[in-house]
């Protein structure tokens, strides 16, 4: 195993979101949404677009603020507030934001690799500049991570020389390089050509098998079915239902889930 996951030192969930509410102006995007994620768990968020999945995982590393509710990650309280009183969004303090971002990695739909750096340099950037690890050691580690993602021969290529699938695997390596306790995946295969989706999902499957805590927003139902410990169905910023993949896919209790699955599985 290249990364290390602290074996459950405490019993409380690694990620706790409680009664999270957020709206853009009059448009509510998250409504009283709660979710706990344990160490080593793989949670897949599904639901129609606009249901708040992406917004929710973005709140987990402070890319979005929340209006009210409580978020705590690996013991750090990122947000904790009473229901909105002065119309002021709850802003996390600088130190806990930094701590949470070091703890939680994120992989984006558009990869967001740094275009002026090679694959290896992308992966080394934060270890060298944030953790102050010597260049040589950081490069060695970066090569290991890239090798694990099947990219050993692409380490010195620039992002524009790589396919989308390769870029996304570099992005996964980049977030692994900071030894996160959890990684958030935001529709990471949606921008890929269909034939490149498989290689990225394979990498994620490997990560899940190694015990990484993952929250995954995706439309890949096959992945959800096979890899998720828990599937969470969202609609209109609310949690509709949650359960094992068998429960959700075979016998959804809420008609919205059934309807959504129907539309995804049989698009016509």
């Amino acid at each position: 195993m290249v990364f290390t996951v602290d074996e459950a030192t405490n019993k409380s969930p690694l990620i706790q979101a409680k009664n999270v509410t957020k709206s853009y102006g009059d448009l509510p995007v998250l409504h009283d949404f709660s979710l706990d994620v344990d160490r080593g768990e793989v949670v897949v968020l599904i639901g129609p677009s606009g249901s708040g999945k992406t917004t929710f995982i973005r709140t987990l590393n402070g890319l979005e603020t929340i209006d009210s509710g409580r978020i705590s990650i690996n013991g750090t309280v990122l947000a904790d507030s009473k229901p909105l009183d002065k119309g002021k969004p709850h802003k996390p303090n600088h130190r806990s934001l930094q701590k949470v971002r070091l703890d939680v990695g994120m992989v984006f739909q558009q990869f967001n690799l740094f275009p002026h750096l090679t694959a290896a340099e992308n992966v080394m950037e934060a270890p060298v500049w944030v953790r102050k690890i010597p260049q040589k050691d950081a490069r060695k580690r970066a090569l290991e991570l890239l090798d694990r993602m099947g990219l050993a021969d692409r380490a010195d290529h620039y992002p524009h020389e790589l396919s989308g699938g390769q870029q996304q695997r570099v992005a996964i390596s980049r977030s692994l390089a900071m030894d996160p306790v959890a990684i958030l995946f935001d529709e990471v295969t949606s921008a890929l050509d269909p034939e490149l989706v498989g290689e990225v999902l394979r990498a994620m499957r490997q990560l899940a098998a190694d015990g990484m805590t993952m929250i995954v927003v995706t439309h890949e139902m096959q992945f959800a079915r096979q890899v998720a410990d828990r599937v969470v169905m969202m609609a209109s910023g609310r949690l509709v239902e949650a359960g094992t993949p068998e429960q959700i896919f075979a016998s959804p209790t809420d008609p919205r889930t059934a309807k959504f699955l129907q539309s995804v599985v049989h698009p016509q």
Binding site: Q98, R101, V104, G105, F108, N112, F114, V130, A171, S175
Partner: peptide, 17 residues
């Protein structure tokens, strides 16, 4: 692109970096 800010902050880089 804004994604560059997001990606860099998500790996723990402070604003100045």
């Amino acid at each position: 692109p804004h994604g560059q800010w997001e990606a860099a902050s998500s790996i723990g880089m402070p604003w100045v970096l």
